[in-house]
């Protein structure tokens, strides 16, 4: 019987070693250790043995049984691992296939420019003021020192709706309205919006475009404050090493009036096709608020002074992004719009 036991053990261990799948191994378990298996049979047959042999034989059977069980379990761990590995192997994907696209849109490039400017001035304590696009002649012209018949009205051929109502030609009427509403109090605003002029649309003209203007009124606001403010703007918008220069100019609503150039951000000032070989790029118009404008809005121009500036986001976007035709901003070609997705930070 002992020999029989050893024989069984040898057989079982062989079968365990040769089992190559979890299922085969389970069959081995059932075959040798199951309720109907030979080891169980041996244990059942113990009753036929003499009583003194039973403990020895019982211990022997248990040892074999444990040896077989332990071998089997060890083999089982191995086979299970192999099975998992095989499964994982079979689940391998081609990670070079494209990802599931996340739907993304983005802002219009003009919005992008306007928001950047808004945020910059908000950080300097400005509020954003808006007003109607269909405006009274009074706010668009007269309150800005442009009475009827003023030659400078020619600079801005306008779309009139009635004799006294027109599509605003600049966002300056928002300044006039804000001044009127503030009743003589200090002001710090930035005014973005759409404006309209009687121009035929071509690569550099658009009958509709956007503007963003700023207005600061307070005690002792000086022309040097205008220069300092514009300098901060130029550096934040076009790079820290930008320099600015002011050139005398004329706007009916400011006196003195200036135009601001920045040193060319493409060539740094040495001259290229962006700056037309001058090293400088014209960016905006500005000036000290004309006393007539202050007085018309009820401000004491002896006590309060101010500065104003205005620029065209189209021009800035064209310069910044190298856009060659202003009509791109209004055609809404997806191949154009979707280029303004990524950050420049």
């Amino acid at each position: 019987m002992e020999a029989q036991l050893q024989e069984l053990k040898t057989q079982a261990l062989e079968k365990i070693a040769s089992a190559s799948t979890v299922k085969e191994l389970n069959d081995v378990r059932v075959a040798y250790l199951g309720k109907k298996g030979p080891i169980t049979d041996l244990l059942k047959g113990m009753g036929k043995l003499p009583a003194e042999e039973r403990p020895k034989m019982g211990a022997l059977v248990n040892v074999v049984r444990e040896q077989v069980t332990s071998q089997l379990e060890g083999r089982m761990v191995l086979l299970e691992e192999e099975a998992i590995n095989a499964k994982l192997q079979s689940e391998t994907i081609d990670i070079t296939l494209p990802g599931r696209p996340v739907k993304t849109g983005n802002s219009h490039p003009l919005t992008r420019v306007v928001e950047e400017i808004e945020d910059l001035f908000i950080s300097m304590g400005y509020e954003v003021a808006e007003g109607p696009e269909v405006e009274k002649d009074y706010y668009n012209f007269e309150a800005l020192n442009l009475p009827k018949g003023h030659p400078a009205r020619d600079m801005q051929d306008s779309f009139y709706i009635t004799e006294d109502v027109l599509l605003r030609t600049h966002t300056s009427p928002v300044q006039a309205r804000t001044m009127e509403a503030k009743g003589g109090e200090p002001i710090k605003i930035i005014c973005p919006g759409k404006v309209y002029r009687r121009d035929s649309d071509d690569a550099t003209h658009s009958h509709q475009f956007t503007q963003i203007e700023g207005l600061v009124i307070g005690e002792d606001i000086r022309m040097s404050d205008l220069k300092g403010t514009l300098s901060v703007f130029a550096k934040k918008m076009f790079g820290d090493d930008r320099e600015i220069r002011l050139r005398p100019s004329f706007f009916p609503f400011t006196e003195p009036s200036v135009e601001m150039d920045i040193s060319c951000f493409k060539c740094g000032g040495s001259g290229c096709n962006v700056c037309k070989k001058t090293g400088w790029i014209e960016i905006l118009g500005a000036g000290m608020v004309h006393p007539n404008v202050l007085e018309m809005a009820g401000y004491d121009s002896k006590r309060l002074t101010g500065f104003a500036f205005g620029m065209g986001p189209e021009r800035i976007a064209m310069l910044k992004y190298g856009v060659e035709d202003i009509r791109h901003f209004y055609t809404n070609d997806v191949r154009f719009l979707s280029q303004f997705q990524r950050t420049e930070l």
Binding site: I122, G125, M223, P256, M288
Partner: peptide, 30 residues
């Protein structure tokens, strides 16, 4: 103010210093 402009432009706008308004700071915002 017209005289200011005449004097400033012939003196040179480059000579104007760059300062920021000294008025009370305002919170600003949307």
């Amino acid at each position: 103010e017209d005289i200011i402009e005449e004097i400033a432009r012939l003196h040179g706008y480059d000579e104007i210093p760059a300062t920021l308004p000294e008025a009370e700071t305002t919170p600003g915002g949307l």
